[in-house]
Design a protein around this nucleic acid. Structure first.
Length: 234
DNA sequence: AAGCGCCTCAACCGCATGGGA
DNA sequence: TTCCCATGCGGTTGAGGCGCT
């Protein structure tokens, strides 16, 4: 960036910084539709925007791109973020791939907010225990102390839901925007180091979690119970 | 009404990565 | 193989909004 700024300065141009104006957005939109969402330096140059290519790319990806979702993260999305963050850590871009319309920036920002909230809750002595890895990324680890965790099926049975129902294809996210994505992910995952069994079980469980997100309260330990057994799966 | 603190989110920064010469 | 450049990614910052006192 310093190099870009320096290069612009050498050419006698000063790069715009700060919030984008409406006319800048329109200009960027126009040139991206003409030239595609590649070659950002070129787009920045030919559009006349006094912005770096990087800045143009960011603006496009995080705001102007079609099908971007603005607004609140749903409970369902939140749980997916939690699950994926637990598995992958701060791989925001990778997590964002699993949430159509959400950007890595959205998720990153959301996680910071979420994290802060959880830490505050923890300080207040909430039973929701999140242990943070020392020196590593900030992925929360669900406490498993006491060895008292039930399997997800056990939990379902406790809640009077048959494991059959939880395991059938009918159980999936029929009303969820993630319905098709999940099957895509499973096939995608199948190419990753023979992890297909793991992911089938993982997504089957995750689908169940998502499907029941209406009745599983935010504070329920079902999510953690479910994920604990999954993350420990070999 | 004013001041303050907290929260959210857009944008920036710097490093990593990949591809081409 | 090495270098250079564009792009991608994750961490961080700061402006503005909002609620509380």
């Amino acid at each position: 960036m310093a190099r870009e700024a320096a290069a612009a300065a050498m050419k006698g141009k000063k790069l715009h910084r700060g919030p984008w104006q409406e006319d800048e957005d329109e200009l960027l939109n126009t040139f991206v539709s003409l030239l595609g969402s590649q070659r950002w330096d070129f787009i920045a140059r030919v559009s006349g925007l006094k912005r770096s290519g990087k800045s143009c790319r960011l603006r496009w990806l995080n705001y102007l791109r079609p099908n971007i979702k603005h607004g609140h993260i749903s409970a369902e999305e939140e749980q997916i973020i939690l699950q994926l963050h637990k598995r992958w850590g701060n791989k925001w871009a990778r997590i964002a791939e699993r949430l159509p319309g959400r950007t890595d920036n959205d998720i990153k920002n959301y996680w910071r907010t979420y994290l802060r909230r959880k830490v505050q809750v923890q300080k207040k002595g909430d039973q929701h225990e999140f242990l943070f890895e020392k020196g590593g990324n900030a992925a929360p680890q669900c406490s498993n102390e006491g060895g008292n965790h039930k399997s997800f099926v056990d939990v379902l049975e406790t809640e009077n839901i048959s494991s059959d129902a939880a395991g059938t294809s009918d159980f999936g996210l029929t009303n969820s925007p993630y319905e098709t994505r999940i099957s895509d992910w499973i096939s995608e995952f199948s190419g990753e180091e023979g992890e297909i069994k793991y992911h089938h079980e993982y997504w089957s469980c995750l689908e169940s979690c998502c499907h029941y997100s209406d009745w599983i309260s935010e504070d329920s330990d079902i999510w953690e119970t479910c994920s604990d057994s999954l993350w420990n799966m070999d």
